[in-house]
Write a protein that binds this DNA or RNA. Structure first.
Lengths: 208, 208
DNA sequence: CGGTATACGATGCGGTCGCATTGCTTTCGA
DNA sequence: TCGAAAGCAATGCGACCGCATCGTATACCG
């Protein structure tokens, strides 16, 4: 059994190509990218691209998965900067804020992801990747609402699950709008803060 | 000056072709349609399609504009069934409800529109058509909130403009989610009703 | 009636696309 | 060490694609 594949290096190559894909997607949209374009943008031969991806669909899907991972990583990093034992509300505000694309990396990931939206209708795999991770955030949001209710900071009649759903839907939508330049990031931030304040009560301490 | 064009008939032909485009878009997504496919689906020659549209982009844009018009018409029709002098809240509930795609025509228009979303980032004309009419709905929503506040049915501390923005963003997002089958229509409806009730207070009379 | 513009159908051209194929080089394990 | 697989580059094929072009039939107006 000769020449075992170095999966570390293998993955790095796939990422390099995917990043070139991202740049093209941002520049001209998903429908404008071809395997040749991606290869040229990445500065590699077309044979190389073919070697690392089974086909165009495979490459496209990987590009989206990677973008979603980046989004997740960015959120993790932001949470790590929150210090030890942050309360649910602080965590939620950080997570939803990140979904608006405040960090350039997040912004790129959002723009790329947004480009795939149209295909979600006809491609279940894309739809699955796009909604992956939503449940976790919803659970977190529901927790934050319950915590605020227990502390008497907000209306006990609110449904934590419904509020959580609304907040995530809102943050996602605002993020996409901002990514597509349909709305300024500043405005998106203001809208999200308004919604959060109304649902959780005014923040007691800083929440950036 | 011979052979004046019958603009009535002209428009009807463009619509016939656009409807075939819609069917293809629903079936396989925007990126899968070609001029040949559209001609075949419409049962006309390719020369005919070329005659009525300056190019593919022109046809695509017309298809979106027509879908947005359909959406507007459906809303108008629903409002017409509301009777004379409905209050702002009733109107708002009807408009936002229609944005969820409860009528099959609306649903089709939403699915088609959703397919264009990804291109909005790289094509300003598409973005413009997609957001056309939003301001009117936002104004209507703000009115409804103010009315509810004046009647003492909801919190006077709410900002009508912010609430209006949130409600429209939410309804649009829920409608797209439902159109992409990321969420059931029933669930979308429940989420919207919850948000409306929370913002406007419980409805005094029926609101369908 | 003749001419001009409309309303097409048919055909083909230049270009691009995804992908299969081929072949060379490198590297590692038996 | 040698052979098999990995890691590429190069090339080409067949299938489109959008669009230009050309031909023709038809209807309207002076």
């Amino acid at each position: 059994m000769p020449r075992a594949v170095d999966s570390q290096q293998h993955e790095r190559q796939r990422r390099l190509i995917a990043h070139a894909l991202w740049r093209l997607v941002e520049r001209a949209g998903l429908e404008a990218v071809s395997l040749r374009d991606v290869a040229a943008e990445a500065g590699v031969s077309m044979g190389r691209v073919q070697h690392y991806f089974a086909g165009k669909d495979d490459m496209l899907l990987f590009g989206l998965q990677l973008a979603q991972e980046r989004l997740g990583e960015r959120i993790e990093q932001r949470l790590a900067r929150l210090g030890t034992e942050p309360d649910a509300e602080t965590v939620l505000r950080a997570v939803l804020g990140e979904l608006l694309g405040e960090h350039p990396d997040t912004r790129q990931a959002l723009r790329v992801s947004a480009a795939y939206y149209g295909r979600a209708a006809s491609d279940p795999k894309i739809a699955a990747v796009l909604t992956d991770g939503d449940d976790d955030i919803r659970a977190l949001a529901a927790d934050a609402v319950r915590t605020a209710q227990d502390a008497g900071r907000t209306d006990p009649a609110l449904s934590p699950e419904r509020e959580a759903d609304l907040l995530l839907t809102l943050a996602t939508s605002l993020g996409v709008d901002a990514a597509l330049s349909l709305r300024s990031r500043h405005d998106a931030r203001a809208a999200l803060d308004y919604a959060l304040d109304r649902t959780l009560g005014r923040p007691t301490r800083g929440h950036r």
